[in-house]
Design a protein around this nucleic acid. Structure first.
Length: 273
DNA sequence: ACTAACCTGTAA
DNA sequence: TTACAGGTTAGT
């Protein structure tokens, strides 16, 4: 569900709510969600820890706790982090509940794909999941040249390359299609076939669409909500995602739908090449 | 580099 | 009943 703009919005809403609070208890309602560190039990380590910072890397949320511990959360398709200022009966899909020194934080996840992993902070960036991630697309060091190098090494289509978190971190099915539309590039193009000008265009489009997504507080096409339960509004600004066979907003011809990298992909054959 | 698998719910 | 849904990954 959440891609970079959604995870970033959740991060920002969480900062206002839980930064500096202490975790006073943990109820694990569905055990696989909480990943222990070696022989350390998740709930035992986490109870009593203070939340000192909340960062994001790609689609991962990184909670730094005191005493050198961290939590690394990934919401996958339908995960949510809901903050409640008062005690709250867990909803049907709640998988884990943090009691805080003020209020509660519930991790709920209809499809049970999401996870929260306990890990020592000093080992965090070298952990299996985070170590492989490509550059942060909104950081200054993510240049068009870097994108070009990464695409040149791929022997797949553009869509699959953009979804590959080792190429760059944070794009998912929505923002990949939207970036390709804005860049005027056909998703099925070979990733290593782009000209320098096309790479610059794609680089700009990726950054612009992600910034616009954050500005709109994410895309709530289905399940996504921020930590306050609020919807985003970027669904109103989507040009192609979810609009297969509808008229292109730019040229009026019907958008096409195809399957790439196992995902439904929508594009305009007229506006993209 | 692909596919199937992980899950549950909703819409066609 | 079947297909499909913001993601990742083990296995091929």
């Amino acid at each position: 569900m959440p891609e970079l703009p959604e995870v970033e919005t959740i991060r920002r809403t969480l900062l206002e709510r839980v930064l500096g609070l202490t975790i006073t208890g943990v109820k694990v309602l569905w055990p696989p969600v909480a990943q222990n560190w070696q022989d350390k039990i998740f709930a035992e380590v986490v109870t009593g820890r203070k939340i000192e910072s909340i960062e994001r890397r790609g689609k991962y949320l990184l909670f730094s706790l005191d005493e050198g511990w961290s939590l690394v959360a990934h919401l996958r398709m339908t995960g949510r982090l809901n903050y409640y200022s008062c005690e709250q009966v867990p909803e049907r899909h709640a998988r884990l509940v943090f009691s805080l020194s003020q209020g509660e934080l519930h991790f709920s996840d209809l499809r049970k794909f999401g996870r929260i992993q306990l890990i020592p902070t000093d080992l965090r960036s070298r952990s299996a999941s985070l170590a492989k991630l490509g550059p942060e697309p909104l950081e200054a060091d993510f240049t068009a040249d870097i994108l070009g190098e990464r695409l040149a090494a791929k022997k797949t289509n553009l869509k699959a390359a953009l979804l590959d978190q080792r190429v760059l971190a944070g794009l998912g099915n929505i923002y990949a299609d939207e970036a390709l539309f804005r860049a005027g590039l056909v998703p099925a193009r070979e990733a290593c076939s782009l000209s320098a000008a096309e790479i610059r265009k794609l680089h700009g489009a990726i950054r612009e669409v992600l910034k616009a997504g954050i500005l709109a507080r994410g895309t709530s096409v289905r399940d996504y909500r921020d930590a306050n339960g609020e919807e985003g509004s970027f669904q109103d600004l989507l040009q192609v995602y979810g609009r297969g066979t509808k008229p292109c907003l730019q040229c009026g011809r019907p958008l096409e739908k195809m399957r790439l990298a196992g995902r439904t992909t929508v594009f305009c054959r007229n506006c993209q090449s």
